[in-house]
Design a protein around this nucleic acid. Structure first.
Lengths: 207, 207
DNA sequence: CGTCGCATTGATATCGCTCAAATCCGGTGG
DNA sequence: CCACCGGATTTGAGCGATATCAATGCGACG
């Protein structure tokens, strides 16, 4: 579980002005912070917990567009839209701050320092989205696990502690959870992977 | 084939200063504008033709991270990196302008107008990347075609004229080209889709 | 306890990938 | 004008990996 981000820290990192944000609000698991089609009133900074941007297909299948955890910002790309194009669903109860869309727009126009940091954050998000995209083009579940570790892991063994359940990871990787269980078990059996609870890493430094 | 973007138009749209860019340079198909690991010297504005950001997997399989055509900017996310993290390959000969990384960084720091536009462009890219991501989570090829039309198409029938070959579209959709041919043929047979050369659209407005 | 959701394993069906082959089409050179 | 060539387009056949359906164990929680 990631540390709870402090408001001052988060504000300092972006150089936000005071009028830009509301007081933190608590949300329970399952709550919707906004829905598709709602007018854009803000962008959300996650202090604690987890929120996902989701769309739902014709048959109700969920698609995760973004996962934001403590310290991360949700729906940054919405700032240029009049309306949200997806739902924001709380998947882990916590606290969130709304950053006013109008104030952010004003700051982007006037505060070069802030605009620079904002652009930097967008670049990072873009890179991460492209990494996920690359991962999704891999056909085999094992390759996706390898790519996930190589991308998200730390150190030579690409160690990661998965947040949430394996089921969640399966959805993130775009495979059925049964397939993920089997794949991980296979990779462990072959000595390619080590798993201890929610900790995953390569046994032999791959790639 | 998209119209050739004019330098003044492209510059005006972003409010670039003169010292920010070089003279246009021609590139032939297959040329590499930069390679993975090269130090980041700039971002590239495509005036004509097409460039792709690609990574290559362990077995040499190509992964398209971005496709930039006339008027679009390539590798915007690289600005915060010291080195490129993928290859830029020309897939359609044309002209490109290098925008100096150092000048862009300076402009981001000092020119709020520019930073605002830059952030807006990043937001757009992010949205597009997330749309592709959403598409890749769809399992069936038909669903991906539908999503592609729904996302990229114009008007009630979601009409699109595909750039490049169907083979290219297949790679963009992450399916084998044979599968795409069959899928499109099936959808036409069922009266769901209409195809005339490179033009695709829904017959019945779906969704 | 009873319930709920995650984790795990088994069995089966299905869809897309792969290999193969035929055709079409635009360009090129004789 | 025609033969030829390379790449795109199609269609066929079969295999294999993954999704799906099912059942069970397990731990948390009220």
């Amino acid at each position: 579980m990631p540390a709870k981000a402090t408001l001052p820290g988060a504000v300092a990192s972006l150089g936000l002005r005071e009028e830009a944000f509301d007081a933190p609000r608590r949300f329970d698991k399952g709550a919707r912070i906004f829905r598709r089609g709602d007018p854009v009133r803000g962008v959300f900074l996650v202090l604690e917990g987890e929120v996902r941007l989701c769309r739902f297909g014709a048959r109700g299948e969920e698609v995760i567009l973004q996962r934001a955890r403590a310290g991360e910002i949700l729906a940054e790309a919405a700032l240029d839209s009049p309306r949200y194009h997806c739902d924001a669903i709380v998947t882990e109860a916590g606290e969130f701050i709304r950053l006013s869309a109008s104030v952010l727009r004003a700051m982007l126009d006037s505060d070069a320092q802030f605009a620079r940091k904002w652009a930097g954050m967008l670049s990072g998000e873009l890179r991460r989205a492209r990494a996920r995209l690359e991962r999704m083009t891999l056909k085999s579940a094992a390759d996706r696990v390898r790519h996930y570790l190589a991308t998200e892991g730390r150190g030579p063994a690409c160690e990661t502690t998965i947040s949430g359940s394996l089921k969640d990871l399966a959805r993130e990787l775009g495979v059925a959870h049964e397939t993920l269980y089997r794949t991980i078990a296979d990779m462990e059996r072959r000595g390619e992977l080590e798993r201890a609870g929610r900790r995953l890493r390569f046994r032999r430094p791959a790639v």
